[in-house]
Write a protein that binds this DNA or RNA. Sequence first.
DNA 1: GAATCGATGGTCT
DNA 2: GACCATCGATTCT
Length: 191
Amino acid sequence: MPLARAFYDRPTLEVARDLIGCRLVHEIDGARRTGRIVETEAYDGPKDAASHAHRGLTRRNAPMFGPPGHAYVYLIYGIHHCLNLVTMEQGYPAAVLVRALEPEGAVGPCHGPGRLTRALGIDLSHNGLDLTGPPLYVEPRRGPPPSIATTPRIGVAYAGRWASRPWRFVERTSRHLSVPLVLPARGPRRR
DNA sequence: GAATCGATGGTCT
DNA sequence: GACCATCGATTCT
């Protein structure tokens, strides 16, 4: 059962954290392509210099300003699509970028925002879609809460002090992250 | 293994 | 005309 709009109508950092361990589902051609979300990033509000919304409302970023529980999909570097899930009330621009999944079934590699959209078959035609039902939605996590680590966001060095905010959330134990977690050195390396 | 680099197109100034 | 919330191949050590 898809997560309801109320899930997305909350502070962006909470949504980004709570999405870890949930299942992203895309129903396409009668099939289900799914993966467990293991990495997200929060882009929160007009003041966040790393956010597409930082320079105000444009045609591209309009979904970020819309109601929660919708998709914001954009094309990056002319090649890759990135999927965001819009959070917070209408008028407040915010979204969570889905950066990596643990692929399920026959789904291809999902360790990166461009890879996961390709694996699930998500493109610009999904921009603005309502996420509270098929074809694109998120299922709640089952089982125990995952152990989560935070890091600065990837690829936003231009954003000054906003770049260092720990707004990237990853499942600590996942081997499907876009960028591996670097843990503090602790004794000799094994294997 | 690390570093570098080209691809490729929509969006905004 | 410049700029990317990236990826994969290639070229180094």
